[in-house]
Design a protein around this nucleic acid. Structure first.
Lengths: 199, 199
DNA sequence: ATTGTACTAGAACGATCGTTCCACTACAAT
DNA sequence: ATTGTAGTGGAACGATCGTTCTAGTACAAT
């Protein structure tokens, strides 16, 4: 799996401050010298892990949202994949590496903070595109409404990831996803507003 | 403000692992000996801080949800109070002490984990009671639906607290609350389902 | 065969950690 | 006036931290 992958897993599970270089040496199988020849510091390695996390963990599972014609179904596919992970993978109980990180940001660590902000901005932008596509069929919502809905999804999914770290089985998470998706559909797929007004 | 209050603030802002005993001495104004005469360890102090947090931070602002006839309005009042805090207080940017903590739980720290689980169980139970009261006027939802809705609120509010740590102004949080409350109302206050079926 | 590269295990560095201890002070109770 | 209590500032403890360094090994390229 490699240095980066194993380091990512370790940070993901325990958090930056809890993980020591000794832990990393043990979990990655790479010596101290080997780690420091590739990364200048524990923090630099951690930043690389965040990038790696977005590439190998988030990107594949998030891909359905980023398709041109994603719509609510794209978001549904994403959430289904998340729930499957929670059920079948060893990833259950870890939450989201990025989401975990910003609850333990040291003051003044603006580089990490900016990294995280950009991460969430990309998610929200993708949600916005997906929902905008869905909305384009009947234009029930204004663009501002779609943006608001996209932020709603970002924050809700943050809650979902967080909570997945705490609970033991995924049924409550599954129910949460169903309700979230029903909410999106009720906003986007219901009878267009104009019909309500003119009838 | 006292030892407990200042220690709580410090842990809240930076997280358990980042805060050192030296930080606590500086921030609380109490000497090392003074702290250790009251609490057996840093961890014991932290646990006391979580209890103190629930008492002095959560309980007052959460009270409207726990009233007998809370309903969705009780939850609205709670969320409004949260948003006001985010806007006016120095608490902005800290998130929730409990929510922050479980993203950085060390493996095997079951005592803290149980503390956190109980915290969220109490929130969900209160939401359930509040929503059950609202539902009692028309019994639109089953008891199981009300439970599901209560979990939905718990997870959503977790997302809200988390995200409050990241964003700079509260407008996106305010919008989130409005949408969440509208969702609750649409489930509880709409025309009873039986009407849809018989008409 | 030699050189260079990449890596290893682990010693060692200074710093800081949580914790304990000590001598001392302030002050209320007797 | 004496005692007891509670707390102070700060030294000191062993442990562990992130980081650097050294000596040695494996192996591909020349």
């Amino acid at each position: 799996m490699g240095l980066l992958g194993n380091a990512m897993k370790t940070f993901w599970k325990f958090g930056f401050h809890v993980v020591s270089m000794g832990d990393l040496v043990r979990e990655t199988g790479v010596s101290r010298g080997g780690i420091y020849s590739d990364y200048s510091s524990k923090r630099a390695l951690f930043h690389a892990c965040i990038d790696h996390y977005e590439d190998v963990v988030i990107k594949p599972v998030f891909a359905p949202v980023e398709e041109a014609a994603a719509g609510v179904e794209g978001i549904r596919t994403y959430l289904e994949a998340l729930l499957t992970r929670f059920d079948t993978n060893q990833n259950f109980g870890r939450g989201c590496l990025v989401g975990n990180t910003f609850t333990q940001l040291a003051e003044g660590d603006d580089e990490t903070r900016q990294k995280i902000l950009r991460f969430y901005a990309r998610r929200t932008c993708s949600y916005s595109n997906a929902l905008s596509y869905e909305n384009s069929s009947n234009n029930r919502l204004t663009e501002a409404d779609v943006e608001g809905l996209a932020s709603y999804v970002t924050i809700s999914v943050q809650g979902l990831w967080s909570y997945s770290r705490l609970v033991q089985d995924s049924s409550v998470l599954r129910q949460y996803c169903d309700m979230l998706l029903a909410y999106l559909e009720s906003h986007l797929r219901g009878t267009p507003r104009s019909n309500y007004r003119t009838v």
